[in-house]
């Protein structure tokens, strides 16, 4: 017999919280089993009353994921699972998930139209793989399963706690955010910078945003001229000196501010883009101050 507790515990976020009493947990398990029975009937199309335990567990995982996604998306407390009629709640949760699927499809179409590949093989393959897989995503029965084989590495990876379409949605959102910055700069200069940062970037799983964002932030720290994307070794040392003179927290804050100012100058005004660039900038700090001369590596100097 399968135990819903394992599936609940394995789910990140809302449903894994330990605020349920043992009696409440047992009640939720019972309610989930009724949903599982329905999902099993759907999966087997009524041909079989039984399934291998692993398959049943996967169906249960999908049910729990769908409910969690709905509760989090609507800011509902986990205890809703105890008070609401679960079949109705699940139907609503599926609608929420289908909404996310539609949004993700729109994001994907936008990515196909707007994301520049810069010759990156992993980015090209990833976009292609998502396109191949997305039409077959089964939100009804296997909502938690990953969609598409994603090779291309983002500068700020999507948390592994996200599953299924939720993961892909966030991945595409971040990919488009990264692309927004690159699209505001001269393609020739971006290409030159990418080659300086990693001559083999086309063949490798190299993120394209990070070296560009680093130089944008670096130039912002020097007072502007972000669109040039060029930082000399001497300038890199000046940036390092500027930051090492500050206490760590202050230096990190300075990097975030520089990122924010750069975004404004590049007309990147949405909060997510600014925050994304700010986090990327902060992540530069340990690399810049690691050792004398290390800033040159952090900024792909020319």
């Amino acid at each position: 017999m399968i135990d819903a507790r394992d599936t609940l515990a394995a789910q990140p976020g809302a449903l894994a919280d330990a605020s349920f009493s043992p009696q409440e947990t047992a009640l939720i398990q019972g309610r989930l089993m009724l949903l599982l029975e329905r999902q099993m009937r759907l999966q087997t199309q009524g041909d079989s009353a039984s399934l291998p335990a692993e398959e049943a567990e996967e169906l249960l995982e999908s049910v729990v994921f769908t409910l969690r996604f709905h509760l989090e998306a609507n800011g509902l407390p986990t205890r809703t699972m105890l008070t609401a009629e679960l079949a109705a709640l699940f139907a609503q949760a599926q609608k929420t998930l289908f909404g996310c699927v539609a949004e993700t499809e729109t994001l994907y179409q936008t990515a196909c139209r707007t994301v520049r590949l810069w010759g990156s093989r992993s980015l090209r393959d990833t976009i292609s793989a998502i396109g191949d897989d997305l039409p077959f995503y089964d939100a009804r029965l296997y909502a938690h399963r990953p969609v598409g084989e994603i090779d291309y590495q983002l500068c700020l990876p999507v948390p592994e706690t996200l599953l299924g379409i939720e993961y892909l949605h966030e991945y595409l959102r971040r990919l488009l955010t990264e692309n927004e910055l690159l699209a505001r700069l001269s393609p020739t200069r971006v290409q030159a910078l990418l080659k300086r940062a990693c001559p083999e970037y086309r063949q490798l799983l190299q993120n394209l945003y990070e070296p560009v964002a680093a130089n944008v932030v670096g130039l912002s720290l020097l007072g502007g001229g972000e669109t040039l994307l060029e930082i000399t070794g001497i300038q890199a040392e000046r940036i390092a000196a500027q930051l090492t003179a500050l206490p760590t927290a202050e230096a990190r804050a300075r990097l975030r501010t520089a990122a924010c100012e750069a975004c404004q100058r590049l007309s990147l005004t949405d909060a997510f883009s600014i925050d994304y660039c700010g986090k990327t900038a902060e992540a530069l700090y340990p690399r810049i101050v690691a050792a004398p001369g290390s800033a040159a590596g952090a900024f792909a100097v020319c």
């Binding site: 017999m1 399968i2 089993m33 599982l36 029975e37 099993m40 009353a49 039984s50 399934l51 291998p52 335990a53 692993e54 049943a56």
Partner: peptide, 14 residues
């Protein structure tokens, strides 16, 4: 039999 075969079943079975 269900435990032995590693299957999960609802209803009255076969």
């Amino acid at each position: 039999a269900l435990l032995e075969s590693g299957r999960v079943e609802f209803g009255v079975g076969a």
